[in-house]
């Protein structure tokens, strides 16, 4: 009797944790870098519109977090990374179902509070003494890119803070604490009126490529491949361009 009661208690929980697949629809789970949030939500909607009975479930996060989760057995069908380094970790572990393909590029842009109170007009301005510059930590992709750009430009940056993510950099700039930050073009665009972007020519020296690949052991291998092709196709590329991403095809 006790066991039955216990089972009755536990079963709904188990069911809730499992798939709600009722046969009439197919679920495709896509793990994508946080910077892809807005663009991939739109792409997923387009994909669902073209594929009856398919539901795309999106999970956004830091690329390295997502990799850790997939390595730990998370039920991802597709992985879209913000950089090649993290995608390579999956490749090294033989966890990709096909070779990763670049589907978008991104370059850095200076971000300043509305009105640009510190009067930043060039990358060299970032080295002004007394300027509150915030960048990503060198350990994260946008930080590594920032460091590379600075090196290429021959400018020594002395930031007041090295943040863990693009979001943290943006938050410091939108709140007005920082005079300037270095983030991706798409981030500036997504932040809207809260910030202003200042383009600089040196940004072209470091182009970040976003790779995408189906995940090995996906229960929906065909659909996963279809989704990858959809992102690489006209619809996907169009959406990505709208959000400020660059194209991988030269």
């Amino acid at each position: 009797m006790k066991k039955l009661v216990l089972l009755a208690l536990v079963l709904p929980l188990v069911a809730a944790c499992g798939s709600d697949d009722d046969g009439s629809s197919t679920t495709l789970t896509v793990y994508a870098a946080a910077s892809l949030t807005a663009s991939f939500e739109e792409i997923a909607a387009e994909f669902e519109a073209e594929h009856d009975g398919v539901e795309v479930r999106l999970s956004f996060g830091g690329s390295s977090d997502l990799v850790t989760q997939i390595q730990g057995g998370a039920p991802a069908d597709v992985f879209a990374s913000a950089d090649t380094a993290n995608m390579d970790k999956l490749v090294d572990d033989d966890l990709t179902g096909a070779d990763p393909q670049g589907f978008a590029t991104n370059t850095l842009e200076i971000v300043v509070p509305p009105g640009n109170p510190a009067g930043i007009t060039s990358f060299q301005d970032l080295a002004k003494p007394g300027l509150n510059l915030v960048v990503c930590a060198p350990a994260v992709p946008c930080g590594a890119a920032s460091q590379q750009v600075a090196e290429n430009a021959g400018v020594t940056l002395s930031p007041v803070s090295e943040e863990q993510s693009v979001t943290d950099v943006l938050a410091k700039v939108t709140s007005g604490e920082a005079d300037a930050g270095l983030v991706y073009v798409t981030d500036v665009q997504a932040a809207g009126d809260d910030v202003e972007g200042v383009e600089f020519p040196e940004s072209d020296s470091v182009v970040n490529t976003y790779p995408i690949a189906p995940v090995e052991d996906s229960g929906e291998a065909d659909l996963a491949e279809e989704f990858v092709q959809f992102v690489l196709g006209d619809t996907g590329q169009g959406v990505l361009a709208d959000f400020g991403f660059g194209s991988t095809s030269p």
Binding site: V134, A137, P159, V160, S161, E162, E163, Q164, D168, A171, K172
Partner: peptide, 9 residues
């Protein structure tokens, strides 16, 4: 700290 102070070694 991370919200308010930033992060610099």
């Amino acid at each position: 700290t991370i919200t308010f102070a930033g992060s610099l070694q």
